[in-house]
Write a protein that binds this DNA or RNA. Structure first.
Length: 371
DNA sequence: ATGTCC
């Protein structure tokens, strides 16, 4: 008599953190796909389109492209600009930030070549943020809790930072679509030709997304007459080889790639954290990638429109400005639609997975602006 | 999430 596999996901949460039942059910179902050996739900876990977001899955001999999703390579890049906080003019900067919906005027083929990618790989989309939860955000240092680690990575309290959240745009979308058309939700056996084809394209999309965040950062800094250096770039949607198995991260930041930035929402602080490697295996070398959604996009307008006008939403409780000239999106991405990132951070800390190095305060959150 | 429909 054979027994069905029953993989129990490990949950990195506490009773102070709210996880939807739907998200847990999605996690349990996904954890029991053929070949799955371990699964982890992170404290920002929330329901997705069948697959939960804020989770990591380890499989043996098989890869599931739909667990990575369409935004292959999506992640967070953090730049330290050469603009000093004391000289940063909020209103003036807000006025200067425009035109990012137009194609980038630079040499996309050259950027791709610099990253070792074919020059024909969607060069025109490079430098565009996209929609949904993507953004570019200027920030300032709010608190430093580990001075040594803070300065060791080159951080300076007086410098304006730029956080970019974007991914592989139409490229990743096309890669997943092509896979789904042929194989639906089926996995790819690691010795098949389709597997090799997918992994090759996936790895290109991951690099493309890095190039995209870099191009976006340069566009934004150039718009303010500034330069800057990249402090970190962390991908939270990918599948990578892990020992002799395959590790899918769906809205999960790696804890074995150095410092990680975990943003809350445009109305809360972001956290720069140092993963604690000695405990990293507990969560499949993965961390929360943000606060996680609390409300469905489709619910936000009804829940908030009587409390806040669009104009209200262009300013946050922390004094930040929001550039989002899309009425639906400005409600969908309201801080209230997200869980409390402080609780997410607490859960990761209490699990022994991270130490907080610093917190960052949003100054200008750029989503989209009409031409 | 998405040149948001091939």
């Amino acid at each position: 008599m054979s027994t069905l596999p029953n993989i129990k996901p490990v949950m990195i949460t506490s009773n102070q953190s709210w996880i939807e039942g739907d998200a847990v059910r999605q996690l349990e179902i996904t954890a029991n796909l053929p070949g799955m050996v371990r699964a982890v739900g992170l404290p920002d876990l929330h329901p997705g389109k069948g697959i939960p977001i804020g989770a990591a899955f380890l499989s043996d001999g098989i890869v599931y492209p739909h667990l990575v999703g369409n935004d292959i390579g999506c992640g967070m890049g953090l730049w330290q600009t050469d603009m000093r906080l004391s000289k940063f003019k909020l209103d003036k900067s807000v006025k200067k930030l425009k035109g990012f919906e137009d194609p980038w005027g630079g040499d996309g083929a050259d950027v791709l070549a610099q990253h070792g990618l074919p020059e024909t790989l969607s060069p025109k989309a490079l430098g565009t943020i996209g929609s949904g939860n993507h953004f570019a955000e200027f920030q300032r240092v709010e608190t430093v809790s580990d001075e040594a680690a803070f300065s060791a990575c080159g951080l300076k309290q007086q410098q304006i930072l730029l956080l970019v959240h974007s991914g592989s745009r139409g490229l990743g979308h096309a890669i997943l679509e092509a896979h789904i058309r042929k194989h639906s939700g089926a996995g790819l056996k690691h010795d098949s030709a389709h597997f090799k084809d997918y992994i090759t394209k996936h790895d290109q999309a991951v690099i493309w997304a890095v190039a995209n965040r870099k191009t976006i950062a340069e566009r934004f800094m150039t718009a303010l007459g500034a330069g800057g250096i990249c402090l970190l770039d962390i991908c939270h949607n990918s599948v990578t080889q892990h020992q002799d198995k395959w590790l899918h991260r769906k809205g999960a930041a790696p804890s074995d790639k150095g410092l990680v930035v975990i943003p809350g929402s445009r109305g809360t602080l972001s956290y720069i954290v140092r993963p604690r490697l000695e405990n990293a295996d507990l969560s499949l070398f993965s961390l929360a990638h943000g606060a996680g959604r609390k409300w469905k996009r489709s619910d936000t307008k009804a829940r908030l429109s009587r409390r806040y006008s669009v104009a209200d939403l262009t300013r946050t409780k922390l004094g930040g400005r929001v550039i989002c000239e899309d009425k639906a999106l400005i409600y969908e991405e309201a801080p209230e639609a997200y869980k409390d990132v402080a609780v997410v951070i607490d859960d990761l800390k209490n699990a022994g997975l991270i130490d907080v190095i610093a917190t960052l305060r949003p100054l200008i959150s750029y989503k989209t602006r009409r031409r």
